[in-house]
Amino acid sequence: MSHPRLRQVVLITADLDSALTRARDVLGFGPGVRDEAEMAKLGFEHEVLTLADTFVEIVAPLDPESSFGQLVRRNGDGGYMAVVQVPDLQGVVDTAAGIGVTPVIHQDYEGHRISQWHPKHLGTLAELDQIEPAETWHFAPAVFENKAQGPGGDIVACTIATPDPQQVAGNWATMLGLDVGEADTVLRLPGEEIRFVASGDGPRGLVAVDLVALDPARAGEVIELCGVRFTLVPTPARQGESA
């Protein structure tokens, strides 16, 4: 893999079972995978759900009085994190240091190199991972065994709401080695987009996700899950292709 990919979004909820039931009802997810022991160390329970080659993870705080539990109680269910696969994580870390941005986590995990980054720099909690080999993903092969049988295919875009969309878009572009105009607030990856919008008085962080509409007649349909808008969209042209 020679370019970044938007591979996963993470949602947070107060009630994991209810959120999973809705996810299966509206997006046709099958059984997901869990790492109960490791996530419990972080204060969460979770499940990773598979679309086709991209993923939706739903997490819930184990302790409602923890900082994460209070966050959900204060703000309600919502977007929690965007996960982008990168070909050279150390290169990203080195480049980020040049603009004064450092990861809050940078470590090896089950043969992969992972990092997490603070929302103040990237608009949402973000995870940038170098996966080996590039075509696999966390929890493989089990994570590929039960793909969704619903209206949506893979993730092709997400939207992050932040007080300063231009600055945040610029941080992402610099770290990932991509071009973005001074007034541009859309990060165009070869296969996906990450869009940055002004949060105003509304929620901040991950607020919307686009999925390929497997039935073209359903393009434009919006499905709400954990406070995040999932929109079914036509298959986008990739960079370098004509629309």
Rank of each mutant, 00 (worst) to 15 (best):
Q130Y: 06
L125S: 05
P103Y: 04
P103I: 02
I99Y: 11
A126K: 00
Q107I: 09
Q130I: 03
P119T: 08
G123W: 00
D108N: 11
V104F: 10
G123M: 03
V101S: 06
L122F: 15
D108Q: 12
P103W: 01
I99G: 05
H121A: 15
P103G: 05
S115F: 03
T102A: 15
T124P: 04
S115A: 10
K120N: 12
V104S: 14
E110C: 11
D108L: 07
Q130R: 10
I105T: 15
T102M: 12
L128H: 00
S115I: 02
G123D: 02
T124Q: 03
T124R: 02
K120E: 13
D129C: 12
E127N: 08
V104Q: 14
T124A: 14
I105D: 11
K120H: 12
S115W: 02
P103F: 03
G98H: 08
Q107F: 08
R113T: 11
H118W: 07
D129L: 07
G100S: 10
Q116L: 13
G100V: 09
T102F: 13
E127A: 14
P119A: 12
L125P: 00
G98L: 11
H118I: 04
V104T: 14
G111L: 09
H106I: 02
R113C: 05
R113P: 01
V104K: 12
A126S: 13
L128I: 03
V104H: 10
H106W: 07
H106Q: 08
G100F: 06
D129A: 13
D108Y: 06
L122R: 02
L128M: 14
R113W: 03
G111T: 08
P103D: 05
G100H: 07
H106F: 13
I114R: 03
G111H: 10
H106N: 11
L122P: 01
D108T: 09
T102L: 13
D129H: 08
P119S: 11
V104L: 12
Q130P: 06
G111R: 08
S115T: 10
V101K: 05
H121R: 07
H112I: 05
V101L: 14
V104Y: 09
Q116Y: 10
V101N: 04
I99A: 08
V101Q: 06
L128G: 00
Y109L: 14
Q130G: 05
W117N: 00
W117L: 02
Q116A: 15
A126E: 00
Q130K: 07
I105Q: 13
I99R: 12
S115G: 06
L122E: 04
H118G: 07
Q107C: 12
G98M: 10
H112L: 05
